[in-house]
């Protein structure tokens, strides 16, 4: 029984670690999405640029004039990079979700077997009492 509990403790710690990783990944995925949106907006703005409208790039504290072609290729390159990063992060998220699911079933199995073992023992009615307490809340 104590062994099962220890195992359960370790598993739940692992589960929480994976959950944290997942949250980090989701956060970076959101950041990428925001960057993509911003760059897409700039690309759209460049494509609807009229004649005589100059593009400047902020380099440190100064604005440098830049050719349209150059600026467009910069934004395009960024968008490509961001899209690649997004598919990479998506893949990682999928993998980690699968891992999470596996840990979950493992935990549930151990819990089920521990409970199954408990009800056969002398404390056979313990689970029932727990359930009643839960209902009372």
């Amino acid at each position: 029984m104590a062994e099962a509990q220890q195992r359960l403790q370790a598993l739940s710690e692992e589960f929480q670690a994976i959950q944290k990783d997942l949250q980090n990944l989701i956060a970076s995925r959101q950041r990428l999405e925001a960057q993509r949106q911003e760059n897409a907006g700039v690309e759209k703005e460049f494509s609807s640029l009229k004649n005589g409208e100059k593009i400047f790039k902020l380099v440190g504290p100064v604005l440098l004039e830049q050719e349209k072609v150059e600026a467009e290729s910069t934004v395009k390159g960024r968008l490509e990079f961001i899209t690649k990063e997004m598919t990479r992060v998506d893949k990682q998220i999928e993998e980690i979700q699968a891992k999470l699911e596996m840990k979950k079933t493992e935990i549930l199995q151990i819990q089920a077997s521990a409970q199954g073992g408990g009800s056969q023992g002398p404390l056979g009615d313990a689970p029932k009492g727990k359930a009643a307490a839960a209902r009372g809340r």
Binding site: V42, E45, F46, E53, K54, I55, K57
Partner: peptide, 21 residues
């Protein structure tokens, strides 16, 4: 005027298209 269009890029526009923007 020079308008910040995001991601460190700025565009010099006339006031009419700035208003549109």
């Amino acid at each position: 005027v020079v308008v910040d269009v995001g991601t460190g890029f700025y565009v010099e526009k006339d006031t009419k298209s700035t208003v549109q923007f």
